[in-house]
């Protein structure tokens, strides 16, 4: 198949390994190897390090995400009248899972002898704790629809971030397996929140689709949308810039039914870069 030789040819191109030396050491973090390292490696890595591509970075970034989600559900459950009675149990379950994930990731860091970052004070308005800053996410804790929209984006972000970070902890089989299991839970959360929104009249599927109604955000909050679903709508996967995969030839659809472009984009959730994820998470810190 012509496509295959294209892919092979592409793969033969030399990879940029400029970041490799640092990774070669740090990706051991998260395993027992950490205890043997001189100096407190955790201390040498600021929480907002530029790259998030080591296993220590991976676990701390996932911990930040889980803490953020736990805080959102905790405050939403505490906000009088925000969540309809019929959905209280759903969000109690979501909160419980996030709480368990926080505990798990905290334990993983502790077991590795790494420093557990302090939980930041989260601000779901997007003002980052400064009252004079513009509100980026209005009514999150007073309007159920606004709350659901944010919950969906954070869950979608979570699905994508776990996908990315699983890649960074492949050196630790047990941690990897647990992270993959959390990943699947996040996807179920997202699908449910999307169901709830659809039940309230929003055009949205249980999986990111190009037919989903856009969640409109101010420009300063756009990075959240990018992190949650940016790129999901695109049915075209590029071999490299300007060279799309010829899906029509590539896929051997045999059921005598045309497959929609939107199905092609829906069928695969996408990972995202840790940098974009961090920028989105920082909107609430």
């Amino acid at each position: 198949m012509k496509l295959i030789s294209l892919l092979d040819h592409l793969a033969a191109a030399p990879a940029d390994q400029s970041a490799a030396p640092r990774r070669a050491v740090l990706r051991q973090v998260g395993s027992a190897a950490l205890a043997a390292l001189p100096l407190g490696l955790g201390a040498s890595l600021p929480a907002a390090a530029d790259t998030k591509d080591t296993s220590y970075d991976a676990v701390t970034q996932l911990l930040l995400l889980e803490r953020l989600q736990r805080a959102l559900y905790t405050r939403a459950l505490a906000a009088p009248g925000l969540i309809p009675l019929t959905q209280l149990a759903d969000f109690q379950r979501l909160r419980l899972h996030q709480d368990q994930h926080v505990a798990f990731l905290t334990e993983a860091l502790q077991a590795a002898g790494a420093i557990v970052p302090t939980e930041p004070a989260f601000d779901f308005s997007g003002r980052r704790g400064v009252v004079t800053n513009p509100v980026l996410f209005p009514n999150v804790l007073s309007n159920f629809d606004d709350f659901l929209a944010l919950a969906q984006q954070l869950e979608d972000l979570g699905v994508r971030l776990y996908k990315t970070q699983a890649f960074n902890i492949t050196n630790d089989s047990q941690l990897l397996k647990a992270v993959l299991r959390i990943h699947a839970v996040e996807a179920q959360h997202s699908a449910h929140v999307r169901s709830l929104r659809r039940g309230r009249g929003v055009a949205v599927k249980n999986w990111p689709s190009d037919t989903d109604a856009a969640i409109v955000r101010p420009a300063a909050a756009q990075v959240l949308t990018t992190a949650a679903t940016g790129g999901e709508e695109n049915p075209i996967q590029n071999l490299k810039a300007g060279m799309p995969i010829p899906f029509a030839n590539f896929l051997l659809i045999r059921d005598n039914t045309a497959v929609r472009d939107s199905a092609l984009s829906e069928a695969f959730d996408e990972p995202l870069t840790t940098t974009v994820a961090q920028a989105a998470l920082n909107l609430f810190v």
Partner: peptide, 25 residues
Amino acid sequence: GQIVSVEARHVAYIRNLLVPGSFAA
């Protein structure tokens, strides 16, 4: 990972059809 999360979304959708709120039970 790109495939399994879509499968997990299917699970949540179908479970909720059978018993509302039974996603991730």
